[in-house]
Computed example of a mutant assay.
Amino acid sequence: MKKRQNVTIKGTKDGLTLHLDDCCSYQELKRELEAKLSVNSRTQDERQLMPVRVQIGNRYLTEAQKEELKTLIRQKKNLVVDSIESNVLTREEAEQLKEKDEIITVARMIRSGQILEVPGDLLLIGDVNPGGTVMAGGNIFIMGALKGIAHAGCTGNDQAVIAASSMKPAQLRISDCLNRAPDHTSAEESHEMECAYIDQNGQIVVDRLQGLSHLRPSLTRLEGGR
């Protein structure tokens, strides 16, 4: 019977990919990995550093075990570990992902000098007064007047949007883009809910809310929503 391969090494244009079996014991995996890397390193040009991507499947490794594998791989002269990828999430990582996808609802007024920040989407039922700031890792929805600063996608999400019942911001920010929304004159005062987003030219645009479903279809999270 052919022995099961716990370590598979594949060469790519970007370096090496190590596929490590997630069913065998950790000690058994280490022994086979060291043996195969020793053979492989003899055929490599030692003058050129070779990036290595490690895929561990459904195996959970502690930080100490990850460092142990990195050290083992680095000892093979020209190998450098780029990443260790796992399908397993720790509880902390899962909670962080949940927070990013969660809509936080807050019912209060944000006054001058106050800052409200959430990791995911923000639904604010209330006004943001001049001098007040709201920040979100995702989208910002304000059921009230936005007269202060709003910063959506503050962790780098350039697909985030800002929507408000009354859009009169001192400043709008989405990801790394910054823009001061145009002032409405009394003659052109909008009574419709408006939204701000980054357009295809990389600029923040303020428009009617109705077109947002076509620009950002991923905003519809209800089952069967389109």
Rank of each mutant, 00 (worst) to 15 (best):
K3P: 00
Q5S: 14
Q5H: 05
V7E: 02
K10C: 05
G11F: 01
K13I: 02
G15C: 03
L16D: 07
T17F: 07
L18A: 11
H19R: 09
L20D: 10
D21M: 10
D21S: 14
D21F: 02
C23M: 06
C24Q: 09
S25G: 12
S25I: 03
Y26C: 02
Q27F: 05
E28R: 07
L29I: 02
L29R: 04
K30C: 13
K30M: 08
K30Q: 15
R31G: 00
R31N: 05
E32M: 08
E32H: 13
E32K: 07
E34D: 15
V39N: 09
V39L: 12
N40L: 10
S41K: 14
Q44Y: 03
Q44S: 11
D45G: 03
D45W: 01
R47M: 09
M50F: 01
V52T: 03
R53Q: 09
V54R: 01
I56M: 04
G57R: 07
N58L: 01
R59C: 07
T62D: 01
E63V: 09
A64I: 12
Q65H: 06
K66C: 12
E68V: 04
L69Q: 03
L69P: 03
L69K: 06
R74G: 01
Q75N: 15
K77G: 00
N78L: 09
L79H: 12
L79R: 08
V81H: 01
V81C: 02
D82L: 03
D82W: 00
N87P: 00
V88P: 00
T90K: 14
E92K: 07
E93F: 04
A94S: 15
L97Y: 10
D101Q: 14
D101E: 12
E102W: 02
I103T: 15
T105G: 01
T105D: 01
V106Q: 11
V106H: 08
I110L: 03
Q114G: 00
I115G: 03
I115R: 13
E117M: 14
E117D: 12
P119M: 05
P119W: 14
I125Q: 12
G126Y: 14
D127T: 04
D127F: 05
P130S: 15
G132R: 00
T133Y: 02
V134E: 09
M135A: 03
M135F: 00
G137F: 06
G138T: 08
N139Q: 12
I140D: 05
F141H: 14
I142Y: 13
M143V: 11
G144F: 09
L146S: 09
L146P: 08
K147C: 06
A150V: 11
H151M: 15
G156S: 08
N157R: 08
D158V: 09
D158C: 08
D158I: 06
Q159F: 07
A160D: 10
I162P: 12
A163V: 11
A164I: 11
A164G: 13
P169T: 10
A181G: 12
P182A: 04
P182L: 02
H184W: 15
H184V: 09
S186F: 15
A187E: 08
E188I: 15
E189M: 10
H191F: 13
M193S: 15
C195K: 09
C195G: 06
A196V: 07
I198G: 02
N201K: 12
Q203L: 01
I204Y: 04
V205Y: 01
V205L: 03
D207M: 10
D207C: 13
D207N: 08
R208D: 14
R208K: 13
L212M: 15
L212I: 15
L215G: 02
P217R: 00
T220R: 14
R221H: 06
G224W: 06
